[in-house]
């Protein structure tokens, strides 16, 4: 055996856990392979990128920036879609296109913060439960079971109602009902990783626990978390919109999609555009995240790959 020979497996040979370790060009090849295998995931990805750009650039691209807040033009109220107002206007004459696009920014901000909080609570707890096991595991997992026993939407409503209606409380409510999913996911990963030779080797040579977790366990358990995040982002946007629709989240005049639909409901029979466009944006963004997340899951799961 020539020891200097470098044996590089084709991309399909190495699956979970090796993505970030590939060299740059191989990484690009993997990405190309991923999208080639998952056309719908690619569609989802394109939509997500577009929405993110809209969210980031909203203040620059919307035609009537002042309409996002309280400025009113009552003389233009409830106009149908036209060249001036692509999505029509609302009951105070504000441009709905500007408001819906700005709503992307609001929704993505909610999603990002809520999921960030959920991950920040859920992952460390899952790591601790899985790594230390025994009673620590029991306590953490039983607490998370309590949270998991409620449907997330119902729990979010209850917490948001308890905390009082505001955007901050909405995000807190959502992350409180979402963290146990991440705890459970990570714990399962950790329990299986703990038996791996490299974890045992590190423990045996006296590497401190926190370092074993940070260097060996966390990096090798992130793949399913990333899939979960991409799937949850859609559901969280939907939940946030539902809460705002119920009056428990964003407050007027903030152009949150759910809130827009709630107000538009009053004009539904005569002015179809008011509820349609925010609804369409909710639909498109939830669908995009689901498509992308499904594709990512299939890609990372060896059982469904290449079939």
């Amino acid at each position: 055996m020539d020891l200097k020979t470098n044996i590089t497996p084709p991309p399909s040979m190495e699956k979970i856990g090796s993505k970030s370790t590939l060299s740059n060009s191989a990484f690009l090849a993997e990405i190309r392979y991923f999208f080639k295998m998952n056309k719908l995931a690619f569609l989802g990805f394109i939509i997500i990128v577009t929405l993110i750009l809209l969210a980031l650039l909203a203040p620059l691209i919307i035609p009537y920036p002042n309409d996002v807040a309280l400025e009113t033009h009552v003389e233009n109220k409830l106009q149908p879609p036209s060249a001036d107002h692509w999505f029509g206007t609302d009951e105070l004459g504000r441009d709905l296109f500007s408001r819906v696009i700005y709503g992307t920014r609001v929704s993505f901000q909610i999603g990002l913060i809520a999921i960030g909080l959920a991950v920040l609570i859920g992952i460390p707890l899952g790591l601790i439960a899985g790594y230390f096991g025994r009673w620590v595991d029991e306590v953490i997992m039983r607490i998370s079971d309590v949270f998991l026993s409620f449907p997330p939407l119902l729990l979010s409503i209850a917490i948001a109602a308890l905390l009082g209606p505001s955007l901050t409380n909405l995000m807190i409510a959502i992350s409180i009902s979402w963290w146990p999913w991440y705890t459970r996911l990570i714990r399962g990963q950790v329990v299986s990783l703990r038996e791996r030779g490299f974890v045992e080797a590190a423990q045996a040579m006296g590497v401190p626990s926190w370092k074993v977790i940070a260097r060996h366990i966390l990096p090798n358990s992130m793949a399913p978390v990333i899939v979960q995040i991409s799937m949850d982002f859609g559901s969280i946007i939907l939940t946030a919109a539902s809460l705002s629709f119920l009056g428990l989240g964003a407050q007027p005049p903030l152009p949150e999609w759910g809130l827009l639909i709630n107000i538009g409901r009053n004009f539904f029979l005569t002015n179809w555009w008011y509820v349609t466009f925010p609804g369409l944006f909710i639909f498109i963004s939830v669908m995009a995240f689901n498509l992308f997340g499904d594709g990512l899951r299939d890609y990372l799961d060896p059982k469904t790959r290449d079939s």
Binding site: S18, T21, R196, G197, A201, A204, M205, G206, H216, N220
Partner: peptide, 22 residues
Amino acid sequence: EKQSRKDIQMVFQDPYWSVNPK
């Protein structure tokens, strides 16, 4: 304890599982 962790080392059975892929 630290010294003994240094003095006893192990080589594992499965070379695919005994090194951290990351």
